[in-house]
Amino acid sequence: YQDQEQRILKFLEELGEGKATTAHDLSGKLGTPKKEINRVLYSLAKKGKLQKEAGTPPLWKIAVS
């Protein structure tokens, strides 16, 4: 689980600052079920590491501290 968090954070960091992506996109790029990706995304957002942008589907990006 920790491993997934690292992979997602790394992927988003590599996208570049301010760039956002969807759970669907992450799921495809990382070869992980979207349900699992979503769980990790919401967990990271709760920890303040990610920012969720409203929309359908929601967009995710690295939180700027």
Rank of each mutant, 00 (worst) to 15 (best):
Y1E: 06
Y1G: 10
Y1F: 15
Y1H: 06
Y1I: 07
Y1R: 05
Q2K: 14
Q2E: 04
D3V: 11
D3P: 08
D3L: 13
D3C: 08
D3K: 04
Q4R: 11
Q4M: 15
Q4W: 06
Q4F: 13
Q4N: 10
Q4G: 05
E5C: 09
E5K: 04
E5V: 06
E5A: 09
Q6H: 08
Q6E: 14
Q6D: 11
Q6P: 05
R7K: 10
R7F: 07
R7H: 07
R7D: 05
R7T: 07
I8D: 01
I8E: 01
I8Q: 01
I8M: 05
I8K: 01
L9Q: 04
L9E: 03
K10I: 05
K10P: 01
K10F: 04
F11L: 11
L12Y: 04
L12S: 00
E13A: 11
E13I: 07
E14F: 08
E14R: 09
E14S: 12
E14Y: 05
L15H: 07
L15K: 06
L15V: 07
G16I: 01
G16S: 04
E17V: 11
E17K: 07
E17F: 04
E17H: 12
E17R: 10
E17Q: 11
G18V: 04
G18R: 05
G18Q: 07
G18P: 05
K19T: 13
K19W: 05
K19F: 09
K19I: 08
A20C: 12
A20N: 05
A20G: 15
A20R: 10
T21D: 02
T22F: 02
T22A: 02
T22D: 04
A23Y: 01
A23M: 03
A23G: 03
A23W: 02
A23E: 03
H24Y: 08
H24M: 15
H24D: 04
D25R: 06
D25Y: 15
L26D: 00
L26I: 12
S27H: 05
S27A: 14
S27V: 08
S27M: 07
S27E: 06
G28W: 12
K29Y: 12
K29L: 10
K29Q: 11
L30N: 00
G31N: 13
G31V: 06
G31Q: 14
G31R: 12
T32L: 14
T32M: 15
T32Q: 13
T32G: 05
K34G: 05
K34N: 06
K35P: 11
K35T: 09
K35L: 05
K35A: 09
K35H: 12
E36K: 15
E36C: 13
I37Y: 00
I37A: 03
I37M: 11
N38W: 03
N38G: 05
N38P: 00
R39I: 06
R39S: 10
V40G: 08
V40K: 06
V40S: 11
V40Y: 14
V40M: 15
V40A: 14
L41S: 00
L41C: 04
L41H: 00
Y42K: 15
Y42A: 12
Y42H: 14
S43R: 14
S43K: 14
S43Q: 10
L44S: 01
L44D: 01
A45G: 08
K46R: 12
K46S: 09
K47E: 10
K47Q: 11
G48T: 02
G48E: 05
K49E: 11
K49P: 02
K49A: 13
L50W: 00
L50I: 14
L50P: 00
L50V: 15
L50Y: 00
Q51W: 06
Q51K: 15
Q51M: 13
K52P: 03
K52V: 09
K52T: 05
K52N: 05
E53R: 05
E53W: 04
A54W: 06
A54H: 14
A54V: 11
A54Q: 13
A54P: 11
A54T: 09
A54C: 13
A54L: 11
G55D: 04
G55V: 05
T56Y: 13
P57G: 02
P57W: 02
P57N: 04
P57K: 04
P58T: 13
P58I: 04
P58Q: 04
L59C: 09
L59N: 09
W60G: 02
K61T: 10
K61F: 03
K61Y: 05
I62K: 08
I62C: 10
I62D: 02
I62P: 05
I62M: 13
A63R: 12
A63M: 06
V64I: 08
V64G: 13
S65L: 07
